[in-house]
């Protein structure tokens, strides 16, 4: 922070020390390996490029998730959000999905968004689980505040874990009443929902070092569930 102006220091939120999420590898139903790793601020523009075409996809609330995530990632890149982190899922280096969240304080985390590009392989479930793993196991937090913006998210998080109501807390996502994943519920759900192994091989680490974006048309088609045009 030595080379930034005094005003900029005031504009930036205070930051806590956050551990780095150790990358892991997950074998998907297709047999493909998805590497889950944390992204650096410099990689954010690449992610914004992937999110941009989804701003107009209404299906499954991709538009609102994309719009909010776009803002959250920009805020992360430009130091306008407190203690945010971003994880991505990469298959052969190609972006399959991303998740983000932030630390409210030492004890409590807040989940922001889960955006799946490669659908049908539980990529979103794996990435959400990785996010919870980061809060509870790596940041040693006691609980994570969560909301869902789509019925799919509600099924995946609220029902599958299952989360507890903490409606007295308004979530940053529009003031929606929060749900809570306490540490004990996380550990109870872990065998069912948290997968992957560490450490990952050098080869996998290398292949996932650079984020490769799928074609814009492919992203929209995968998200909208459309297939190639028929005769």
């Amino acid at each position: 922070m030595g080379n930034i102006s005094e005003l900029e220091v005031l504009l930036r939120p205070p930051a806590m020390d956050m551990p780095v999420y150790p990358p892991k590898a997950i074998t998907l139903a297709s047999g493909e390996t998805m590497v889950v790793r944390q992204v650096a601020r410099e990689e954010v523009p690449t992610l914004l490029e992937a999110i941009y075409p989804l701003l107009w996809v209404e299906r499954d609330f991709y538009d609102i998730v994309a719009a909010r995530l776009f803002g959250e990632l920009l805020a992360y890149k430009r130091y306008r959000v407190k203690d945010e982190y971003v994880l991505v899922g990469l298959i052969d280096g190609v972006l399959a999905g991303m998740v983000n969240g932030r630390l409210v304080d030492e004890k409590t985390g807040m989940s922001y968004h889960t955006l799946t590009i490669r659908r049908g392989l539980r990529v979103g479930s794996h990435l959400f689980a990785a996010k919870m793993e980061y809060h509870i196991e790596h940041c040693q937090q006691e609980e994570v505040l969560i909301v869902a913006e789509s019925p799919i998210g509600f099924r995946r998080w609220m029902i599958e874990y299952p989360l507890e109501k903490k409606f007295e807390v308004q979530h940053e996502m529009g003031g929606v009443p929060s749900w809570l994943l306490p540490k004990d519920v996380y550990y109870a759900a872990k065998p069912r929902l948290v997968a992957g192994h560490r450490p990952i091989s050098d080869e996998l680490m290398k292949s996932s070092a650079t984020i490769i974006l799928p074609e814009e048309e492919t992203v929209v088609r995968q998200v909208a569930g459309e297939k190639e045009e028929q005769q």
């Binding site: 074998t27 139903a29 297709s30 047999g31 049908g120 392989l121 539980r122 479930s125 192994h197 297939k227």
Partner: peptide, 26 residues
Amino acid sequence: NPYAHIQQTVTMEGILTLPEAAVNNP
């Protein structure tokens, strides 16, 4: 089959034998 709903192959490891299969295939 270009008319199929799910045009995605799956493997025995991914849906049954690896530990991840418990999450992939609940």
